[in-house]
Nucleic acid binder design. Structure first.
Length: 451
RNA sequence: GCCCCCAUGGUGUAGCGGUUAGCACGUCAGCCUUUCACGCUGGUAGCAGGAGUUCGAUUCUCCUUGGGGGUACCA
């Protein structure tokens, strides 16, 4: 099995594209597991030289590598096949399978007005103009691993333009020729290509080459059912990465978006996916990309990481260092990298200053009285550890005859500036005795945290 | 307009003629609990509609409706 991923080099790796890449990759790796020689070819090219910039190509490669999708051949990043394409076009012309015509969109419309809206355009050889392929009578059947057979009546098909008047090749010719040359056996791509497949099949037939096995994936939509775009939030892998998701979670989520197994497992490792994935079982209907479940999955993966591993990733993502202690006490409370700083940032940057409500409720007269007592109790500790801090704080409510919540929340607001934080014993222990007492002092002195 | 594809709860899916229609996310309730989470328990919610075929349709066929794609001298 030889499959390829051939995105248009626009720079961003669209989520739908990433899923197509993943499915190709899983199909190849899965087949390899069965002992079948398999290759995954990466081809980033365009008949439009302008768009195929090195920068765009590199962005896609980078996104693919982040996801952990590797390739056996490629990437082919240049418009390197034009000569070959021209050669094929000349051959088709010479054999009378294609012809030149100056007919443009208006002429095609006029033709349909005359012959019927469902009749495909048929031109005559004028010896100049764009090059169109002759569509023969009959029908063209697309055999698809996911959809079964789809029959297209050739009468409905316009003679497709395969090259511009200046000889530069067009997509439908280029993909077919490139896939033939690369000896691709399975073409797994988005459903948006299904309607154009008959045109490509015509090229295969004209060249006398056995076509590959097709598999057209359903498209991805946004949460509202409309085409996925930036206004839905993240629409590309780069944006997902920036939003603080783990590549493992993204892969797992994408694999399950449009494909399901009779097995009910949800959390699947790369190895399990390679083993179980079956293109034939991909759904036929479009799926909505909804970040809610991705967040949940991401949290699952994030919590399963070792503290060291998570710390390293978080330090890379935030550009800060010395995060380990904070990571350790925050891990079970966050589901993406972006949740980390809002939760634990106070440890490094001081208490939050904008939560007036929390301060009003917990640093009022009663709160300050409790904090004063708390401060004394903590100050008396020789060893300021998680155990001693916890023991001390737990004894306070009874001694002061207040509810436990009064003590814990007042301390929390004094240390963090807000009512949401990692465990309070853990936070105090991490801050250390001096800093903990300092923050409590500041809170008692009027509740205004120091800079 | 023309051609093509698709249709199970709010979302992602399992199901492949007979099931109490399963699982996961979400949501709701409860438990746990120093906050927020995590975790656990339980609940809620679905076969788009209409004709057939059949002893029997979520499952097969057709129509309607709805959604999507294609229709460039774009990819």
């Amino acid at each position: 099995m030889r499959v390829r991923f051939a995105p248009s080099p626009t720079g961003a790796l669209h989520i739908g594209g990433a899923r197509a890449a993943l499915y190709n990759h899983l199909a190849a790796r899965g087949a390899a597991l069965q002992g079948e020689p398999s290759q995954f070819v990466l081809r980033i090219e365009d008949t439009d030289v302008e768009r195929s910039t090195q920068e765009n190509v590199e962005q896609i490669i980078d996104a693919l590598q982040w996801l952990g999708i590797d390739w056996d051949e490629g990437p082919i990043s240049q418009v390197s096949h034009e000569a070959r394409h021209r050669e094929v076009v000349e051959d088709l012309l010479a054999r009378g399978l294609a012809y030149r015509t100056t007919a443009a969109a208006d002429d095609v419309r006029a033709y349909k007005d005359e012959h019927g809206a469902d009749k495909g355009f048929r031109g005559t050889d004028e010896g100049e103009g764009a090059i169109r392929l002759h569509v023969p009578d009959g029908e063209t059947v697309v055999h698809d691993l996911i959809r079964g057979d789809t029959v297209f009546q050739n009468v409905h098909m316009d003679d497709p333009v395969i090259a511009r008047a200046d000889g530069r090749p067009l997509y439908n010719l280029a993909v077919a020729v490139d896939d033939i040359d690369a000896q691709i056996t399975h073409v797994i791509r988005g459903e948006d290509h299904l309607s154009n497949t008959p045109k490509q099949l015509l090229v295969y037939a004209a060249l006398g080459v056995e076509p590959p096995i097709w598999a057209h994936l359903p498209l991805l939509h946004g949460p509202d059912g409309k085409k996925l775009s930036k206004r839905h939030g993240a629409a590309s892998v780069q944006e997902l990465r920036e939003a603080g998701y783990l590549p493992e979670a993204v892969i797992n989520y994408l694999a399950l978006l449009g494909w399901g197994d009779s097995d009910d497992e949800t959390i699947l490792s790369r190895a399990e996916l390679e083993q179980r994935f079956d293109v034939g079982k991909v759904t036929k209907h479009p799926a909505r990309f909804d970040e809610t479940k991705l967040r949940w999955l991401n949290g699952k993966y994030l919590r399963s990481l070792s503290v060291d591993d998570l710390t390293a990733r978080l330090e890379e993502h935030t550009g800060r260092t010395g995060l380990r202690g904070a990571v350790e006490i925050s891990q079970e409370k966050i589901s993406t990298f972006h949740d980390f700083w809002p939760l634990a940032g106070f440890i490094f940057d001081g208490p939050k200053v904008d939560d007036e409500k929390a301060r009003a409720q917990w640093l009022d007269e009663e709160g300050q009285r409790v904090l004063a007592q708390t401060r004394d109790a903590l100050a008396a500790l020789d060893a300021f550890t998680l155990e001693t801090v916890e023991q001390t704080l737990r004894e306070l409510p009874a001694q002061l005859e207040v509810k436990p919540k009064q003590v814990f929340q007042s301390v929390r607001v004094a240390l963090a500036g807000t009512t949401v934080s990692p465990g309070i014993f853990e936070s105090a222990a991490l801050l250390g005795k001096d800093e903990t007492l300092r923050r409590i002092d500041v809170a008692i002195g009027g509740g205004v945290p120091a800079a």
